[in-house]
Structures are given as structure tokens and as C-alpha cells.
Design a protein around this nucleic acid. Structure first.
Lengths: 216, 216
DNA sequence: AAGAATATTTAGGCTAACCTAAATTTATTA
DNA sequence: TAATAAATTTAGGTTAGCCTAAATATTCTT
């Protein structure tokens, strides 16, 4: 088995690679709140264990084995988040840190039973897909609200920014997963957007429109 | 906060002290599967943090602070065991190792919500009392079956041995928590006992009678 | 109460994961 | 393309928790 720290590295590399194709030492250091030198140490170790492809100075990608582990951690993270919100009534902005701890509980049986207990949910509270027990899931193709044109309709389906403050903002604005929206106006000057949500008009900034994801 | 290892030491010291009043270096080493020299290191550290009372060669006891932490870990352990059995349908002999991991999840809010979700259970699946969120619980005064006389009646309420094999044995014999029993015979020679449980007669050894706990 | 047995502590070392500072490589830009 | 900037790695050090072997304290036995 792997240490918590190794698991955190694998997860970070997975997420970073999704965006850029590979992860650099500095990106990993930033995302794990550690220093580049520490990252280099760990990269050697993970490469030694054949969990990453690493050539000095060139950034890293996960091997098949490494990816499998990363996905299993993400599965655990998202299932626990679902549990915390749906069963324990946590708010969606309160669950991340606790799930960061819970995701390292090793037992596969535990997580498969938890999955069954909750009825095999497909998405976590933030709209991210939950891998099944074989590690399969659709890498969802969501677009930001900012890609909609006037009169475009869509359903709020995810977030690009998972920070507490953004999630709290969305909750206050009632811009939560599953809501139907329609763009009624786009401001040319600052790219802010006015949305029709149920019977309300909601004005959001360009930044929010970029970080709020939709399905059509 | 404390490390997982520190928490495990505090828990071990708590359990050992319950029996003998204090815990010795060797007892702690045995119970944590480590070596006496490692224990001595940790005892110094815990004493430094004022979590234990330690004088060289004299064994240790928990301070009030140390005990509070130990009890909070026991609360978490037992609540998780209850969850695993009652909600996820684990068998009572399968939950210990997973609970050993879960008990170190820090969030107090998590555990209090979990407690509420399950309806504030008073006992875990093995009959051990669950401390409430203030750390209060009745240190239960159960006696072994072996203290009963012929025709004595009681209710199975706990176990002294939490090993997988003992728990599996009890399950096979249908000697589970809550069952009403009556002693129909005691064998003078080997101190084995015949119990009436529901409509069955069950023959148990002296060893089992010593490790199975009852309330009257 | 002295010697033997047992328990405990000290000394010195190891590994995982972190750090800073210095060296080196890669990327950028004039 | 040379020089500067930025990114990365290496060198050397720290802490937590563990270990073995040796030293010391306590307990038991006679």
C-alpha cells in the first residue's frame, strides 16, 4: 500500500494532468502546499514504484497503475462528499476538508458498501462524476456559462472553482446543481451575464460565468 | 492536534489503565505491536505535552487532558462501528480494523452529525458504551456468564474478547447481544455451561463463559 | 539481602517527508 | 545567440516514529 502522502501526490498529478497533459514540479508543489525540492524527492520515489513517468526537468504523467490509484482515491473522495451532504446534511461548501481525510481510508469493501448504501450516485455534490468500483466514469464535457449566447438555455451541472467562497456565493444566489437557466442578457463591456433562473433574474460577473459549468 | 500515533498510544493507555490502574511500558508495547524502546520515546513526548503522568520505570496514567482525548477517540471508534454494522451491513467481527482507521478522522462536527444521523446510539455492536459528545458514558458493570448459578437468567450484553474468531464463534452459536439466556447446567469438572437460549440448549466452555458478558 | 531474571531506558541508527541554500538545467528575451 | 530569468534538482539538515544492542533499574527468588 501507499502512504497518505503518496496518495495525495498521485491525486494532485492526476488533476493537473487533466488540464495540461502533464504536471510540473512547481505545479505539484503549489497544489500540495509544499516546496519544489520536496516534490522532486517524492517524484523519484513514485517513479521508482512505477506509478509515474518521470524524466528530470520534464514534468510527469501517471502510469496506468498510478492512474488507477488516483481514480480510486477520487472515487472515495466523491462518495464521501456525497454521503456528507446527502446523509449528514453538511453544506456543499463544508465537505472538502473532511473528505480529504476520509479518502485515505483503505478498505475497498467499505467504499463499495457505502456506494451501495447511497444507491450508486453518479455525481458528487459539486457535480463531479463519481468513478464506479472499476474506476470507470464519464469525464464530463461541461462548458462554462460564459459560452452561452443570449436566449441560450442550460442546466447548472458543475463548478470549475471548488473554493468555499465560490460555493457559498452560488448557494446564496441559488445557483445550485440541477437548476435550469436561460441567458437573458450579456453585457458587452464587462462580459457580465443576466440569467433567468426560475422566476428570478440573477446578475453574475464574467468571472462567475467562467467558473459555473452547464450541460445543455 | 495530535498525530495518529499519539492517539493510538493514548487509547492503548486508556484501555490498559482501566484494568490495572496504570499501564506499563511493556504492556503498551505489546498492545501496539511495537518495541519497549519505541514506547519509552513516545512516553517522554506525551509527558512533555502533559497528556500522561510519567515517572521513569513507574508506568503511566493519563492526565485529565489525555483521558479526554482518549475518550473522544473511543467515541469515534464505537460510533463508526455502529455505523458500519447498522447502516452498511458489516458483520460485527469485520468492523474493528476499519474503525481503527476511521477513529482518527479529526472533525468533531462529522462525528456529532454521524451520531445524530444514527439516533444517538448508546452501545456499539459489541455492547460497549458509546461516550456522548461531552465524553460521558456509563462504564458498564457487566459480569461474565461464568458468574451465573444454575437457573440464573441474564441478557447477553457484551464481550470481553473482541477477536474476530470469538465474535464469529458467538455469531455461529447465535449468542448475540440482547439475547436472553438461562443457565440450565454447570459442569463441575471443566466448568463448562449449558445455556437455554430461546428454544435451544447451547453448550459453552469455561473460556467462552468467561469472555461473554451479561447484564441481569 | 544478594544474585538472577525481568523490565525499562539510553545510545545510536534508520526511513519518510519535509525544509533551505546552492547548483544546474531549461526557457525567455534582448 | 548570449545573457538573464525561471524552473528544477542536488546537497545537507530536521523531526517523528521506529529499530537493535547495551546499560541500568526494579522485582523476584532463594
Amino acid at each position: 500500500m501507499n502512504t497518505f502522502t503518496e496518495e495525495n501526490y498521485l491525486k494532485a498529478i492526476y488533476h493537473l494532468s487533466l488540464q495540461a497533459g502533464s504536471a510540473s514540479t512547481n505545479q505539484i508543489a503549489t497544489s500540495l502546499n509544499t516546496k519544489a525540492a520536496s516534490v522532486t524527492d517524492m517524484l523519484k520515489k513514485l517513479a521508482e514504484k512505477a506509478l509515474i513517468n518521470y524524466t528530470k526537468y520534464q514534468g510527469v504523467t501517471l502510469t496506468a497503475t498510478g492512474e488507477k490509484i488516483a481514480i480510486s482515491i477520487i472515487r472515495k473522495h466523491r462518495l464521501w462528499e456525497y454521503f456528507l451532504v446527502e446523509k449528514l446534511n453538511f453544506k456543499w461548501d463544508q465537505v472538502h476538508d473532511v473528505a480529504e481525510e476520509l479518502e485515505h481510508i483503505a478498505s475497498k469493501e467499505l467504499i463499495d458498501r457505502l456506494d451501495t448504501f447511497m444507491g450508486h450516485p453518479k455525481y458528487d455534490p459539486h457535480g463531479d462524476p463519481i468513478p464506479d468500483s472499476n474506476g470507470l466514469f464519464k469525464t464530463h464535457e461541461l462548458k462554462p456559462v460564459s459560452t452561452l449566447v443570449v436566449n441560450g438555455k442550460a442546466i447548472i451541472s458543475g463548478v470549475r472553482d471548488h473554493s468555499t467562497s465560490f460555493l457559498q456565493y452560488l448557494e446564496r444566489m441559488q445557483l445550485t446543481i440541477g437548476k435550469k437557466i436561460k441567458v437573458t442578457e450579456i453585457n458587452d463591456y464587462d462580459h457580465s451575464v443576466i440569467l433567468q433562473v426560475e422566476d428570478k433574474k440573477i446578475h453574475i460577473s464574467r468571472e462567475v460565468a467562467n467558473n459555473l459549468l452547464i450541460a445543455l
